[in-house]
Amino acid sequence: MVEESGGVTKDAPKIPPFTRDQELTAFREMLLIRRFEEKAGQLYGMGVIGGFCHLYIGQEAVVVGVKMAARDGDQFTTSYRDHGHMLASGMEPKRVMAELAGRRGGYSKGKGGSMHMFSRAANFYGGHGIVGAPAPIGAGVAFANLYRGDDRVSLTFFGEGASNQGQVYEAFNMAALWKLPVVFIVENNRYAMGTEISRASAQTDFSKRGAAFAIPGKQIDGMDVRIVKAAADEAIDWCRKGNGPYLIEAQTYRYRGHSMSDPAKYRSKEEVQKMREEHDPIEQVRARLIADGVSEDELKKIDANARKIVSEAADFAVADKEPDPSELWTDVLA
């Protein structure tokens, strides 16, 4: 389906169906992220979380679809809108929440916060506050995979706004030149802070952005978890076989403001409402599960469980202590 020359495949293939189990997994994982983010927004409003806090609500299908295609050991790298990626990587909700609250039980001992979190154990390489940084870092993780000769693939996420950074193209070139096993996933949520794509990008088809380096690219509906999973399957397979990098543009949408302080004057309420009502990634799965005969009750149970995990995470975070003052001086050098 993908042209070897690095051509760009545009036509969406027939949507590969999910088994009921896969639908349930996707539903559970996406709902956990949604509930987690709602709680994080609430804790921010209460002052438990400070600084910048970028919520992933609306974009859940992207990371969950990719995760469902990934193998244990594949690495994730992303930017500051990272809570969903951490949960999808299997990191513990309570330790993620504790980090958001700046508590000692957090993944970075409270020293990193929302934008800067890592877990070597979960193969999660951040959590980067600087726009564009994930692209070369993710390529570097792929470099290490190739160097060691294991067949791991580096899954590297960044925004469509970040795709205008020069370092992204430096990374593309090296990744193609050295055939690095890296899937670049552009999460095109149509806005970079208050800038709509057409005001910042001369080429708004982000799947074409690797064409100059012969990197195959695919533009997909990132609100449909099945489509994301299928595209990621193909991309990961391409990388694992030693063909070099692959580029996915997942078209998605963030419902909330860029960060918590966002006057939201750059888009209409109707636009947001329409997305929520007609394209919500979780509602799509819910509707299919109901049509498949799964009971409302069962889905409610899954939701109740997600809420329970999240409220336990919040309780843990709020009750946990701040880091010991001596931690100011630790971890500066290895």
Partner: peptide, 11 residues
């Protein structure tokens, strides 16, 4: 202080 800026409020 001669460290990166920590996130936690107390630090």
């Amino acid at each position: 202080k001669d460290t990166p800026m920590p996130y936690a409020a107390n630090l």
